[in-house]
Design a protein around this nucleic acid. Structure first.
Lengths: 331, 331
DNA sequence: CGCCTGTAGTGTAACGTTTTACTAAGTAGA
DNA sequence: TCTACTTAGTAAAACGTTACACTACAGGCG
């Protein structure tokens, strides 16, 4: 690999001048600038990132800390993050904590050691890992706000309202809630805004919380079996909805014949299960890209502009909700 | 952040001694060794990877180059890679080429610049990116062999045979092949071994190739509509199988009532579609972990032990294949 | 002419680590 | 007592880059 020294020797100029050209600083004449540039190209010069990192303290790498790549919410996000990062010349270092808090903090330790310039993080639990404070780097959160950090996520409140409007439109006034983890704000907002949209019209028959990974607790299974008059089940995300559909199927309950169901996230598989799942679409790609832009801004020392960036969501109407009750005017 | 110099000052010893202790070299006495270790712990010393990298040329980071995280084959792999890498103290730098060759070579360029110590790579096309030769680092391939590189993948031939045995057992003797890309060896082997297992008994009614991402070409759709007497469709992977099931459903063809279908990979969603998909399970986690072990071995300069590591696969029997033809003895 | 300013360029220290070559002191053998 | 060897430890160079402090020279101005 060619170094600045090689270029300097080739052109007959000092390494300082080469460096000045490469970081285009003004104090170098036209002729030399040309020559250095030419030589750099000729020798296939690539700056040694390690050396740059040591000198400047910046690595041009960012960390991406995720709870679980196996949840289809994240791969799309990760892909967007990696691609926009790369288009900015930033390398993405991946940590997948597999849902374990110690994995998360080990991951942060590793990232700190490698001195990434910033991190994009979808936090696992409500508690922040202790070593996060030591990490004197910009952090941008995804999907799950925590006090003191900028965050980008989609408009869960809007999602909840959209779902409530839709439920009403389809004649459902008694619903069961299969919510996500109550300590995750995005999960709570989805439910809360659904509940609060039409508090007098839509009654909540029951609510049980399960993990975002969609594994159903005995409580959840029990709720699905009994249903207590709910005609619509509003699930905290698509994984939960799909698990619920499966569970219902195993108990001989037809969806949407006997009970309707909605999801949240619009992961790829909502379109492929039977019945196809009505859900809320989030612009995952845009969220990932925005998160990269935000860390990048902060890395280059720009002042904090916004603490929250929120993206609109949209209702994706498919086949998992049946219209019930009295007829209504044609569309 | 504490440096070796800080430790040296704290203990009252030279930086060389500190370094010697830390890399446990023999030439330092018991007493000083203890003191240095204690001070390092006390000060929370973490070696600066950038400095180490510059001095030694090793970064303790590896690249992971994937075609498409959105294909559920890869997240599980990536998770396994990241986790075993982390357990070895290695950082994983992610490249997702989104199926584009230029993305792949840009990614390699980025990895080279950051001087990763090795790369785990699932190559996109048959051609290797030109800059791969410059990358004087160990490369371990996943899933797709290329001449000259070690590779770890699962036993596709066995998968093909297993599928053929099963087809026969279920009475299917006329099948349609919805294969993966013909230029990807793993795709070819799946089909070929299926075809060659019982060449006289099982007849191939037709074969069409589609991408591993499961988007169906007009040819594929046409084949699915006509079917030309095939009672079983053997798909190149689960994504293809699921797309095919959807396509068939849209044409009013019942699975497995009118036609049976099998997949390959056993991604999470095979268990959740209707009917549940009969498929071949690959030990993705083990494959990822093994790949990390292999690069790690090569990074530490060990000699090449094996060029191919192959994992057994297993048939996962679910509901997408119907038994047809004459009755057979009970199990 | 002497002074100032601006432009073009250079020497070198520094970043944090590893490693080579070296010294000093102790120990053993003859 | 002298040599030879081992052990414990250190000084300093090196990795590739950046940036500070500096020089040299030209031109402009009073």
């Amino acid at each position: 690999m060619a170094t600045v020294k090689d270029i300097a020797a080739a052109v007959g100029v000092s390494v300082a001048t080469v460096s000045n050209v490469l970081n285009d600083r003004p104090n170098v004449g036209r002729a030399n600038r040309q020559k250095v540039l030419r030589a750099a190209k000729l020798l296939g010069y690539r700056p040694n990132r390690s050396a740059q990192a040591m000198r400047t303290g910046r690595t041009r790498a960012i960390g991406l800390v995720l709870p679980d790549l196996t949840n289809p919410f994240f791969p799309e996000l990760a892909q967007a993050v990696e691609n926009t990062a790369r288009s900015l010349g930033l390398l993405v270092c991946l940590i997948d904590s597999q849902g374990r808090a110690d994995g998360e903090s080990d991951g942060f330790a590793l990232l700190m050691q490698h001195a990434v310039d910033g991190v994009i993080w979808c936090p696992l639990g409500p508690r922040l890992p202790a070593n996060l404070k030591n990490l004197a780097r910009p952090v941008v959160l995804i999907d799950r706000p925590r006090p003191g950090y900028p965050v980008v996520h989609s408009d869960y409140k809007m999602g909840g309202r959209l779902l409530a409007q839709y439920a009403l439109r389809m004649g459902h006034t008694r619903v069961g809630l299969l919510s996500g983890p109550p300590n995750i704000e995005s999960a709570r907002q989805r439910s809360d805004c659904f509940v609060n949209a039409y508090p007098r019209t839509i009654k909540i028959a029951w609510e049980v919380s399960v993990g975002f990974d969609g594994v159903l607790t005995p409580d959840a299974v029990d709720a699905l079996e009994r249903r207590r008059g709910a005609t619509l089940i509003v699930a905290g995300n698509d994984l939960i909805a799909i698990s619920a559909m499966r569970c219902l199927g195993e108990h001989g309950v037809s969806v949407p014949g006997d009970v309707s169901i909605t999801g949240f996230d619009n992961i790829r598989w909502t379109d492929v299960v039977t019945p196809r799942l009505t859900t809320i679409a989030q612009p995952l790609g845009a969220i990932g890209a925005k998160a990269v832009e935000l860390v990048q801004e902060r890395m280059s020392g720009e002042r904090i502009r916004s603490r929250r960036t929120i993206f609109d969501v949209a209702l994706i109407e498919r086949d998992s909700v049946r219209r019930i009750g009295q007829s209504r005017p044609a569309a």
